[in-house]
């Protein structure tokens, strides 16, 4: 699981049919101090996250598990919205 910040939306009418009910969002991976690490990715939103929100997402084929289908070509899914992060610096 990784921390990220939602930075935008992607609209795609022509997509894998199982994904029609889901938003696709741009996520910028971040660390615990809210600093960007790495390149933005696109993730399926399964929890109703909005731009600007801090979230966590899962990658690889596990990203399909929150979806109501057993198969979908998805390698990143937002699975939670972060309320607070508590870290010993």
């Amino acid at each position: 699981m990784f921390l990220g910040k939602v930075i935008g939306n992607v609209w795609a009418t022509q997509k894998y049919e199982a994904l029609h009910a889901f938003k696709l969002m741009f996520v910028q991976p971040i660390n615990g101090e809210n600093e960007n690490i790495g390149e933005p990715i696109v993730a399926v939103d399964t929890v109703g996250a909005g731009p600007g929100e801090i979230i966590y997402y899962i990658t690889a084929s596990e990203a399909v598990i929150p979806l109501p289908v057993d198969m979908a070509p998805v390698d990143a899914s937002i699975v939670g919205i972060v309320d607070t992060i508590n870290m010993k610096s």
Partner: peptide, 12 residues
């Protein structure tokens, strides 16, 4: 390839 992008928006 699992989607053809119509539009994307990065408001931040």
């Amino acid at each position: 390839i699992m989607a053809i992008v119509d539009k994307f928006d990065v408001p931040l």
